[in-house]
Each structure stands twice: as structure tokens, then as C-alpha cells.
Amino acid sequence: MFVRTVYATGDPARIDTAIRALNSQGRELLEERPGYRGAGIFVDRALGKLLAVSWWESEEARRNSDEVMRERRGVLLDPFAATTSVENYEATVFHPVRKPEAGGGLRVTRLEFDPADADLLTDTFRASVVPRLESLPGLARTSLLIDRERGRGMVGALFVDRESLAASRGVQAAARHEGAAKAHVTVVGLEEFEVVFTDVRGD
């Protein structure tokens, strides 16, 4: 699958306006597009951060959908968003364990790597990291998203509740250290979000 992420920051007091717009009008627009496989909305209410993720069955479907969404994105995020960035990824690993729930937690690890090591990263994550993560209590799913050309990626670990997210920090830190060393990647960011909505139809 292929993924588009929209990362917005703004006034925490106005974040609910963006959530309502994305969760209604935004989802309706996405669901009308060919090749749509699902979406998620994740927020940090305290800092005023919003991460919207949409999943597509092909790179072409993602690209075609963006022609429509680009025109509407500003309206949907207004008046919350002061900054907005859009990135595209390939989902090289999508590993569901159980159904996620609203109110759960998402941990995002941002990576940089030599583009020549993209396949090494995918193989390492699938063979070494996934087995360690899937045993964590409350894990709903984990995924690896990569941009092969730019050498950037994201690991998502989604938990059914915030308590499981917090309890997993030590184990995932160890897995992150081991995986980064094996795959020759640099961890450049670590964030946690509340799950507002997520529904992805995996393979």
C-alpha cells in the first residue's frame, strides 16, 4: 500500500475544529476516491499537533486523490492549522494484531537512512522488530513507511489504550536501538499521539 501523511500544527484550543472537519467532510472526500484503503486521525491536544494519514492501494491512486484533496485541505484544517506539511510513503510493512480503538495511542518514530538501504531496513524491521513489538500488551498494529528516494521513513506502533502505549516505551526503545543499528538508520524524531479515528483495510 501507499500512504499520504498530513502533519499540521496550530493553536491547541482550535484543534477540535480541524478534527470535526477531517472526520466528516474529509473522510467523505477520501472514501469517494478510487483505490482508497483507509485513514487515521491522530492528535496531540496539549501541543496542538495533528497527523492525518490516508492509505491507498497504489501509488497512482494516491497521486490522483491528492489532486482533489490539495484543493480542500486548507479549508478542512482552517482555522486550526498554522503550519502544514504533506509527505508520501510506501508501506513496506503493515502488521495488524487486533482492532485499534478511539482513545488509544500511537507512537511515531521518524527515520533517516541511505536510500540504498531501503530494502535492508524493510527486511530488518520485518524480521527483528515486528516479533518484539507484536508481543507487547495492547498492540493493535505496527507499520513501516518509507520514502525510498529521500531516505526517510516512519515507524508507527498503534496501541488500544494510552496505558499500553506508556507501558511499551522501554521495550520499544530497546527494539528501536537494535533495529537502527542493524538497518543503518538514524532516528530523528519520536512522537506520541491520541487516536481519534483509524480504519485501514490491509491486504
Rank of each mutant, 00 (worst) to 15 (best):
M1E: 10
F2W: 12
F2V: 04
R4I: 01
T5G: 10
V6E: 08
Y7I: 04
A8K: 02
G10V: 01
G10I: 03
D11F: 11
P12F: 06
R14Q: 15
T17S: 13
T17H: 14
A18N: 06
R20V: 12
S24C: 13
L30K: 00
L30A: 04
E31M: 13
E32D: 15
P34K: 03
G40Y: 00
D44A: 09
L50M: 05
E60H: 12
E60W: 11
A61V: 10
S65T: 06
V68E: 11
E71P: 06
E71T: 15
R73L: 14
G74K: 12
V75C: 11
V86L: 11
V86W: 07
V86R: 10
E87I: 09
N88P: 13
Y89D: 04
R98A: 08
R98K: 13
P100S: 07
E101F: 11
E101G: 14
E101A: 13
A102W: 09
G103P: 05
G105M: 04
G105C: 07
V108I: 13
V108E: 04
E112H: 13
D114C: 06
A116Q: 15
A116W: 12
D117Y: 07
A118V: 11
L120R: 05
A127K: 13
S128M: 02
S128N: 10
P131H: 06
P131I: 10
R132L: 02
E134P: 05
L136P: 02
P137E: 08
L139H: 03
L139Y: 05
A140W: 01
T142Y: 03
T142M: 03
L158R: 01
F159M: 07
V160L: 09
A166P: 08
A167V: 08
S168I: 04
R169D: 03
G170N: 06
G170S: 15
Q172T: 01
A173Q: 04
A180S: 08
K182G: 03
A183D: 00
G189I: 00
L190I: 05
E191N: 14
F193E: 04
F197A: 15
F197W: 14
T198V: 11
T198S: 08
D199W: 15
V200W: 05
R201T: 14
D203W: 09
